[in-house]
């Protein structure tokens, strides 16, 4: 019975995990959802910054402490860093073709973005809660 295959595993077993991880669609979609949110948040941020021109320290702080401003600032920081990480990931995947360099850069960007997001959000909370 020489027709028996030497390998009893189904070829699919080997192929699994090598193909698409199915993350592509959600990456693309979240990039769009954050982009749409950032249209509004971005324009709003510009108006906030313009209102802060020539404001002294106390006035600037009071402006950020207003509930809606605090909420929108946190929304902006979280959304923008998220969108930036997704976007930079595509750029790195396009240009960096050495696997360890690519992985290191992707990780570094995520660490920096998460730390900066947390620090930014905490700062807004401290101002809003008067700490």
């Amino acid at each position: 019975m020489s027709a028996y295959p030497k390998e009893y595993r189904n070829p699919l077993k080997k192929a699994r995990g090598l193909g698409s991880a199915q993350h592509g669609v959600s990456h693309w979609w979240v990039q769009r959802v954050t982009a749409i949110a950032l249209v509004g948040l971005g324009i709003w941020l510009v108006t906030l910054v313009l209102r802060m021109l020539h404001a002294d320290y106390a006035t600037a702080r009071a402006l950020v402490a207003r509930p809606w401003n605090a909420v929108l600032l946190i929304a902006f920081v979280v959304t923008a860093f998220w969108h930036a990480v997704l976007g930079l990931q595509v750029v790195i995947e396009d240009y960096v073709h050495t696997r360890w360099k690519e992985a290191t850069l992707l990780m570094a960007i995520k660490f920096i973005a998460v730390l900066a997001t947390l620090a930014g959000v905490l700062a807004v909370l401290r101002i809003a809660l008067g700490a």
Binding site: V64, F81, G87, I112, A116, A119, L122, A123
Partner: peptide, 17 residues
């Protein structure tokens, strides 16, 4: 803009600090 975001974070941290 990604680099600019760090400036936004710095502004907020400085304002709180």
């Amino acid at each position: 803009l990604s680099v600019g975001l760090l400036l936004v974070a710095w502004a907020l941290i400085a304002l709180a600090g």
